[in-house]
Design a protein around this nucleic acid. Structure first.
Lengths: 254, 254
DNA sequence: AACCTATATACGTCCGGACAAATATAATTT
DNA sequence: AAATTATATTTGTCCGGACGTATATAGGTT
């Protein structure tokens, strides 16, 4: 990268200099020049070695941050945290509806609402201890009057139990009602999807044969302290519902 | 932002100037000063209006890009694409394994490999026209010798059919073999999950009763032109497999 | 040895300037 | 009017410099 006279990139490979540098550094990490856990050269050292400005170095490192290969801390330095670029694919959810994957005109109808002590089986499914006190709202989600999509058991904390009255009023998701009403914010949502058989009581409501296949989705909503403030267990009889995910290769242009 | 004398941030609110600017601009977008679909002021105009350098403006706009509010194109300008910061929840897949959700020590065993013309039912499932020519690789994924996890039908383009020999050699995912072998790159992956009943022939191999519930996952791999170059249909008998998604509220400060 | 302090180090923020590359616009030609 | 060309506009890349702020290190104190 001879840069004696000016910086006019004449003769250069039409390339982004920082990208070329990022490629080199990534390669050096992969080949073990900078092992994971160790510290990389400082910005100034990289500037001197490659005869580029700090801007170029920082731009290169910025990309490597996005790729999850390095981690930087002011005053400390740059640490290698991964040998190969991570976050290959990214899913972006642009709205709550995409998260829940229901069109806004579906509606919950509450079948039952009561405080319960969860049994062992449920405790395992929703990820709490047996005997914990939760308020369970049993409901059915309808597309229209005659078309039940899924059975949904919503578990909320006892102190939030009065939100049960609000369910079905409009199409607002339950966790958003809690957010608005009690000020908690869902910082993390985990979803588990697996297949199962529908039990007799629910099968009757859903209009399918007992034991027929269902897609079970367990959603756990956590606030920033990591405390789960809502768990929902939805059972979708086969053919009623498809869960779709669209993953795009992250545009970090490796 | 009175900045008449110098840039030495003396008296300044200890603040990141670009962040303050980003906040202002985001607020102006939300309040309709720059409606969605219209073009925002140029960098130079923002520099003048706020008496900051281009660096600061670009840094602010960069954050708004990450938030999905604006879109920029060289030579063209900056367009508002969203009123409020989108991507409320972001899923990051740190590796291919997370995408496939199998630990690296699972292994595919090919049961059958042949060119087929897809029938109507399969065509609908994998999203192509009936009669289209694909090469189908039927296989079973094992955790160890005795533990089948799922049945997997992998459809690849006829011109890629010879990769069938490579499956099972190591634990590399099929689409990565195609990527490496033929140079195509998966730019987008869509996944559909739903419940179904396992058919008799597969049930026998998987060691479950015919008609028992399964989690069916259909994965479509597209290159950058949008052409699907691989479709895999995996059937996981109930109890064998859980698909987990972890969504984090995107940390774009706001 | 444990604690505090001064210093050096390294990343973060911000400026001004310059040229490159892509796009849009205006002018010209056909 | 349509197509082509020239020009202006706008973002992208890159430089050198300056100072702020957080962290680590070395030194001194208790």
């Amino acid at each position: 990268m001879g840069n004696s006279e000016t910086q006019t990139r004449q003769g250069g490979p039409a390339g982004r200099r920082y990208q070329a540098l990022a490629d080199i550094l990534q390669d050096e990490i992969e080949t073990g020049v900078y092992p994971v856990g160790t510290r990389m050269p400082t910005e100034l050292e990289l500037c001197n070695r490659f005869s580029v400005s700090r801007f170029t170095v920082r731009e290169a490192l910025r990309r490597m941050i996005d790729n999850g290969m390095i981690l930087r801390r002011q005053g400390s330095g740059t640490v290698v945290v991964s040998k190969n670029p991570t976050t290959m694919f990214v899913q972006k959810l642009s709205s709550i509806d995409e998260l829940l994957q229901y069109s806004i005109d579906t509606r919950l109808k509450v079948e039952n609402s009561a405080s319960v002590e969860v049994d062992a089986k449920t405790a395992k499914m929703i990820g709490c201890d047996p005997g914990d006190a939760w308020h369970r709202i049993e409901s059915v989600r309808y597309l229209d009057e005659k078309s039940p999509i899924c059975w949904s058991d919503v578990y909320v904390r006892p102190e939030h139990q009065n939100i049960a009255d609000r369910i079905g009023e409009d199409t607002t998701p339950v966790f958003m009602v809690i957010e608005k009403e009690f000020g908690v914010v869902a910082e993390e949502v985990t979803m588990d999807l697996f297949a199962g058989s529908i039990e007799e009581s629910k099968a009757w409501v859903m209009g399918v044969k007992p034991g027929s296949p269902t897609l079970i989705i367990v959603r756990k909503y956590k606030d920033k302290t990591g405390r789960v403030f809502e768990v929902s267990v939805s059972e979708h009889p086969a053919g009623r519902f498809t869960f779709s995910i669209d993953l795009l290769r992250s545009s970090n242009s490796d």
